[in-house]
């Protein structure tokens, strides 16, 4: 696992979907305020659905494996 992510700091962006849909849920679980006509939790879900692909793209943009279109090796042959 350490080899798997070594030298790929941009992969930290992959935690964003987990922050939005896991860590933040206790705070986001409310009906107010209403934003863009949406009760808060539904607005939050919409926002998170839009931000998640963006975060995964940010992870890819600086990922050396992505830039070389290469697969990570395994610990077994």
């Amino acid at each position: 696992m350490t080899n798997h992510v070594k030298g790929r700091r941009s992969l930290l962006w992959l935690t964003v979907p987990f922050l939005l849909f896991v860590a933040a849920i206790p705070l986001a679980n409310r009906a107010d305020p209403v934003i863009l006509g949406l009760p808060f939790l539904f607005f939050w879900a919409l926002l998170a659905v839009i931000l998640s692909p963006l975060a995964i793209w940010l992870a890819a943009r600086k990922d050396p494996y992505y830039l070389r279109d290469e697969a990570e090796g395994t610990d077994v042959d």
Binding site: L14, P17, I56, A59
Partner: peptide, 14 residues
């Protein structure tokens, strides 16, 4: 449903 798909694709990338 939309939540686990977002976390799921991050894991798929990895």
């Amino acid at each position: 449903l939309v939540g686990y798909m977002a976390t799921g694709y991050a894991t798929v990338y990895l």
